[in-house]
Design a protein around this nucleic acid. Structure first.
Length: 462
RNA sequence: GGCGUCGUGGCCAAGUGGUAAGGCGAGGGUCUGCAAAACCCUUAUUCACGGGUUCGAAUCCCGUCGACGCCUCCA
């Protein structure tokens, strides 16, 4: 039985879908105005793992992730660069899609964009005004009336009275209540705008997700996800908007990932302590990033530093070792123990993942299976005997989104390495250890690790 | 100040009432010309601290201290 921690109830609950074996899932994507960083990668990976596991458990998953391509920061950045805002955002959308692909994140079922959802958004706002949940101000802004929504604050568990102290009203805003938030913002001179019943303007941040959710997945969904920094105000306001509009419960489960920590602080664009996804991938593999996430708890802060990354890298190498073929001289063993360990790994894997996606536990089951496989190989198992366990191993690793592939080099480089290996093999045959070790050092310099065995020498790019 | 998450070995981290998973690191060993990888052994009488409940608590309750996040744009 799958259990999920629900931010809304602050409890771990049994997972029950609206429709049998179908999951409607919406995850808040990014605002596209510069390179995405590894914190975004963490979030994307977390929900990718959740999605993959739901599929593994037999659910059909509709997975929607939006792009915020209309926003103050995009407008400012575009102005700086002298570029059209929508061109700039499109550039970063393509860019982020590439990042996600590099990270082995499955493509979403749909990627709606704000700029293409204006009619929906306007209709949504009109509906809210009709029902008295929103009002147009003199200046052309439209605000959501929080006092009309009796439930307001239930996701983030805060009361309007407590919030007012910190609330502020910008100059020019004409709100009835300080916590009222913008559904529509009147365009300032020279800004990108869309025509609306309230004049030229653009949507507020929260309304897009409500509108696109409705359009893509309907009035009610199973899972709504995002970083825990979105709980308030973004998700709180989404609930307010959607439930006021439809009169129905919006999402059954609200899931939030913890923040990636760099130097004891949240990694964020505003703090500037950023490592971009591209920068990361130029140094380490997508599997390493994923393993870092898997080693932790998705809801907790995740430590991002050389020590945790080195450990993740070693973990990947260790898992890869399970996929190595049998030795050429293997003569077979009694494979009963190995068969049993497949079953136990699958069981432990599922038990861990069923418990609110306990990926650290799931990975532990992979380590155990990998140990069984390696032991069997050391004891002389044949490839035929290893194969079922290795297949199961690959399947489970795949559910976590791990590729466990070796790095590829160019064919010229490979040829160069092979030539050196051949020379070293010859030297070793003649017991010229000095020469043989020189070549090994040379290969190391080139980024090649070699392993000698009785079957010969194998090597790979680091 | 309010709300929330959490404090487990050198590090990352499971475990949420029945007596501390897993990984990294470290030490020893097997294998190897030497390595590397793999495998084997060792590495927390103890779970921030102080009370309490219980036959029994890392796990439940109360208090204290500390960390992180949100309360303003943020995955």
């Amino acid at each position: 039985m799958l259990k999920i921690y629900n931010t809304l109830t602050r409890k771990t609950e049994e997972f029950q879908t609206l429709e049998p074996k179908r999951v409607k899932m919406y995850v808040c994507g990014v605002t596209v105005y510069n390179d995405a960083h590894v914190g975004h990668a963490m979030s994307a990976i977390v929900f990718d793992i959740i999605r993959r596991y739901l599929i593994y458990r037999g659910y059909e998953v509709k997975f929607v992730m939006n792009y915020t391509d209309v926003d103050d920061k995009i407008i400012n950045r575009a102005k700086q660069l002298g570029e059209e805002p929508l061109k700039l955002s499109q550039r970063y959308i393509d860019d982020y899609a590439n990042d996600l692909k590099s990270l082995n994140v499955l493509p979403a079922t749909a990627n709606p964009q704000v700029s293409q959802a204006m009619p929906l958004i306007i209709k949504f706002i009109e509906g809210l005004i009709e029902k008295g949940y929103a009002y147009a101000a003199q200046n052309g802004d439209v605000y959501f009336r929080v006092t009309k929504d009796a439930d307001y604050g239930r996701l983030s568990n805060r009361k309007l009275d407590d919030m007012q102290a910190g609330a502020r009203i910008e100059i020019g805003e004409q709100k009835d209540h300080p916590m009222d938030f913008a559904l529509w913002k009147a365009a300032k001179a020279g800004e990108i705008f869309w025509e609306s019943p309230w004049g030229k303007g653009r949507p507020g941040w929260h309304i897009e997700c409500s509108a696109m959710n409705l359009a893509e997945l309907g009035e009610q969904i199973d899972i709504h996800g995002g970083g825990n920094d979105l709980i308030f105000p973004h998700h709180e306001n989404e609930i307010a908007q959607t439930e006021s509009y439809t009169g129905k419960e919006f999402s059954r489960y609200w899931m939030h990932n913890g923040m990636l920590q760099l130097g004891g602080e949240k990694m964020s664009k505003s703090l500037g302590n950023i490592v971009s996804i591209k920068e990361f991938l130029s140094k380490r593999s997508a599997d390493v990033m994923r393993m870092l996430v898997l080693n932790g708890t998705y809801r907790a802060p995740l430590m991002f530093n050389d020590e945790t990354l080195d450990a993740a890298e070693r973990n990947i190498e260790r898992l890869k070792s399970a996929l190595k073929p049998a030795s050429a001289s293997s003569s077979g063993i009694n494979a009963d123990t190995l068969s049993a360990s497949i079953e136990s790994a699958k069981k432990n894997f599922t038990e861990a993942m069923d418990n609110d996606f306990n990926t650290a536990g799931a990975v532990a089951s992979l380590f155990e299976l990998s140990k069984s496989i390696n032991t069997a190989r050391d004891n002389g198992a044949t490839n035929e005997q290893l194969s079922p366990a290795q297949s199961a191993f690959k399947e489970l690793a795949g559910v976590l989104g791990l590729k466990l592939e070796d790095k590829q080099g160019s064919s010229e480089k490979d040829a160069e390495v092979n030539a050196l290996i051949a020379e070293r093999t010859e030297a070793r045959k003649n017991k010229q250890w000095k020469r043989s070790d020189e070549i090994r050092d040379q290969l190391k310099e080139m980024g090649v690790t070699i392993e000698d065995s009785k079957d010969g020498t194998t090597w790979k790019w680091n």
